[in-house]
Amino acid sequence: MSEPLRTGAERTWDGERELDRAVNEIEGFLLWEAEKDRARTRAEAFCAALPWLTDTQRQDVAVRYCQDQHEISRAYLERIAARSASLRTEYEGVYRVLRRRLVTACVSATTVLVALVTVAAAGLTR
C-alpha cells in the first residue's frame, strides 16, 4: 500500500519531488492538449479558406495539417526543454560560484573584524 501524502512540515523531500513531478506531468498534458486544440482550430480555419475542397478532402487536409503542427510543436518543445536543462545547469554553476564567493567574503570580513577587535583590545590593555 502506498504511503499517505503528508502536508506541511511532515511532507518529505521525496514526497515534494514526487508531487512536483505529478504537477509537471499534468501541466504538460494540459499544455499539449491545448496545443492540439490550437492546431485543430488552425486547420479548420485553413480549410475554410479553401471552399473548393470536398468534405473528404477537407478532412484529409485538416488531419495532415494537424499532424504537421504536432510534429513542429513537438520538435519546438524538445528544443525548449533541452535549452532549459542547459540553462539550469549553467545557472546552478553560477549560483555555486557566487555562494562560494559570498561565504569567502563573509569569512574574510569576520576574520578581519576579529583581528581588529583583538588588536584594539590589546591596545587598550596596555
Rank of each mutant, 00 (worst) to 15 (best):
A120H: 03
D20V: 09
L31C: 14
F46L: 11
E25F: 05
A75I: 03
A34W: 10
E18A: 05
E33A: 14
V112W: 00
V63M: 05
M1E: 01
F29Q: 03
R96P: 01
E78T: 02
L77E: 15
G28Y: 06
A85K: 03
Q69W: 10
A49I: 00
A39I: 13
Y95P: 02
T110W: 15
R17K: 05
R40E: 10
D37L: 05
C66G: 01
E33L: 15
R74H: 15
V119T: 06
T104E: 13
Y91C: 04
E25H: 08
G8I: 04
V119G: 03
V97D: 07
H70W: 08
W52Y: 08
A105P: 00
P4I: 02
T104P: 01
W13A: 09
L124P: 00
R100D: 15
R99A: 12
R11V: 07
C47S: 15
T125S: 14
V63F: 12
C66I: 11
E16V: 08
V23A: 06
R79G: 01
L113S: 12
E71T: 13
D55P: 03
T41S: 10
L53V: 06
Y76K: 13
H70K: 15
L87D: 12
T125V: 05
V114C: 12
L19Q: 04
G28C: 02
E25C: 00
R64Y: 14
R126G: 01
R79D: 11
A34M: 11
A121Q: 04
R42N: 02
E18G: 04
S108G: 13
E3F: 01
V97I: 11
V107D: 04
T56M: 09
D68M: 13
W52S: 08
R38V: 13
P51H: 15
T118Y: 12
L102K: 11
C66W: 04
R101V: 08
